[in-house]
């Protein structure tokens, strides 16, 4: 177990290093001189020189990379050129909208998809299965931001159950915050839940065809007992992979959907960063997003070991 954990941890560290190199290269190397890029063509040479000094662009590439990464470690993301405040501050406030939204959606998606997928697999070929397969086929095809607009149209504008957008801030209390994130989370979660339910269904159907299910049935377990006691845990292994991947889709989706609901999250920050050519903001927020995705991949790997003894004991599986 310790060996597996250490290998995964090493792979996590390696991924982070390479990812940071890629981001650094795209943002700071490809544009040539980031300072003149950020200021545009008409900037006075003195202003450019001042910004160069501020960004520390006079040092070597290696030194700049190391100081950027070193800063990330201690929570120093640099200073935004447009806002004139530390990026860490900007990100900190907005992260508390985007991250809860993503996790809320992930939770909804998982809670909906797993039972739905299990029901479809257990009643394979029956009306419930056909209904679920049809509904999820539609769910997969719906773009989440359009679904969000429809939800606003129905639940905010017509029924007035929710407000059409905005975020009261967590200071206003837990419930108003959750309420404001509910429509966005539902809009994000349903298309992903459709995918996940289908994966759950096919994984369970495949597991139910395994020899050990036949063994279990020959012991006297009913179909339901065989599903609960043997098939489910085995079927969840591929489902976990998809849940891990969905985190990154949901995070990206959250960034898009914040636009529909006027939520003050990372999405708004990064799109403003792009229009204002504030590379400092873009670089750090992208690194943060990628970090989150890589971290989740790592956590999924650890969860595999918790569920599967073949990984736990020194990689005996061949």
């Amino acid at each position: 177990m310790a060996r597996y954990f250490l290998t995964r941890l090493g792979s996590l560290a390696l991924s982070l290093i390479v990812a940071s190199l890629v981001i650094f290269a795209v943002i700071e190397v490809i544009p040539g001189d980031p300072a003149s890029f950020m200021l545009g063509l008409n900037a006075a040479p003195e202003t450019v020189a001042a910004l160069r000094a501020e960004l520390g662009l006079d040092g070597s590439l290696t030194a700049r990379y190391l100081s950027w990464v070193g800063g990330l470690f201690v929570g120093d993301f640099g200073t935004s050129y447009t806002y004139r405040v530390p990026v860490a501050e900007l990100v900190g406030a907005r992260l508390w909208v985007s991250l809860p939204l993503t996790l809320y959606a992930l939770l909804l998606s998982t809670l909906i998809a797993i039972p739905v997928g299990v029901i479809a697999a257990a009643r394979r070929g029956g009306p419930a299965d056909y209904g679920i397969m049809g509904a999820t086929q539609l769910g997969i095809a719906i773009p989440n931001f359009w679904f969000a607009m429809l939800l606003v149209l129905v639940f905010a504008i017509s029924l007035r159950w929710f407000s059409a957008g905005g975020f009261p801030g967590w200071e206003a209390g837990l419930w108003p915050g959750i309420k404001a994130l509910t429509l966005p989370a539902v809009a994000l979660a349903l298309p992903q839940a459709s995918i996940l339910a289908r994966v759950m269904r096919s994984s369970l159907i495949e597991t139910l065809g395994q020899d050990y299910i036949r063994t279990a049935r020959a012991k006297g377990l009913s179909q339901r007992q065989a599903i609960v006691r043997h098939a489910l845990r085995n079927a969840l292994i591929p489902v976990m992979t998809i849940i891990g991947l969905q985190f990154s889709f949901l995070l990206a989706g959250a960034i898009i959907i914040e636009n529909v609901f006027f939520l003050p999250g990372l999405g708004r920050l990064i799109f403003q960063g792009i229009t204002q050519r504030d590379l400092v903001v873009v670089e750090s927020v992208v690194m943060l997003l990628v970090f989150a995705v890589i971290l989740v991949t790592f956590l999924v790997d650890i969860a595999y070991a918790a569920i599967d003894p073949r990984l736990r004991r020194g990689g005996g599986a061949r």
Partner: peptide, 18 residues
């Protein structure tokens, strides 16, 4: 399982790996 038991051909896959 109680009155009739059964075993199968392929022992490598006949047991729940977890």
């Amino acid at each position: 399982g109680r009155e009739i038991g059964m075993i199968f051909q392929e022992p490598m896959t006949a047991l729940n790996p977890l």
